[in-house]
Design a protein around this nucleic acid. Structure first.
Lengths: 103, 103
DNA sequence: GCAATAAGTCAAAAAAAGATGACTACTAAA
DNA sequence: TTTAGTAGTCATCTTTTTTTGACTTATTGC
């Protein structure tokens, strides 16, 4: 085996792919909170005890990139940003609930 | 270590708990292989390109500890060990298949 | 213009996860 | 008793992930 570092993961395993969508220290909790209500950055920062801006920003960006969250600018009182579950994101809810029941 | 690093994860999030069962570089692939047939250490080591003994041992132990795999000693020709999906492990299969369809 | 609120970015450090290579333990057969 | 097969462990090193704290950008109100 040639010692290539992170060689292009041919991603032979579909389970791996789906787990990646929610892998990381904060993504699962962020996802759950998003199920109930739209998310805002600073609110989230207070809700997630121990989380920091950087980690949060990274997690939100990745959730957005994988199509689970939508980011929209709200032009209101104090202009802000909202993160909402996409349809794809919502489609995961029942399956995750089912899994929770099994564990 | 007197100082606790990973402070008692109150584990507020069930999604987190279930994702942990299959999180890590090799666990998803190991799980998938276990669906088809009992696993043996050295065979697995050859099947998982790039995996090493240590990582494999750790993954197998964790899968066992979380109740997804059973480890049994087979007293046969060349005495060896077999890892099989537990009932709990098997119960995950249909749900994971469902998730794969969504991603 | 100046301060406050909201949502970030950046470089560096710390911690966790994974990889390496040498070594161990058990059994069975020669 | 030596050798081979199976299934590991251990200490150490490297890579990846997460955290820290300072700095940035944009908008609104005074």
């Amino acid at each position: 085996m040639t010692t290539k570092k992170m060689e292009e993961n041919t991603e032979t395993c579909p389970v791996q792919g789906l787990l990646k969508l929610l892998s990381g220290k904060w993504k699962p909790e962020i996802f759950r909170l998003a199920v109930n209500t739209p998310l805002r950055f600073n609110t989230l920062l207070k809700q997630l005890e121990g989380a920091n801006k950087q980690s949060l920003a990274t997690a939100l960006k990745e959730l957005e990139e994988s199509g689970l969250l939508d980011k929209i600018v709200i032009r209101e009182k104090p202009l802000h940003i909202e993160y909402n579950l996409t349809e794809k994101g919502k489609s995961l809810i029942p399956v995750l609930e089912q899994l929770e029941g099994l564990i």
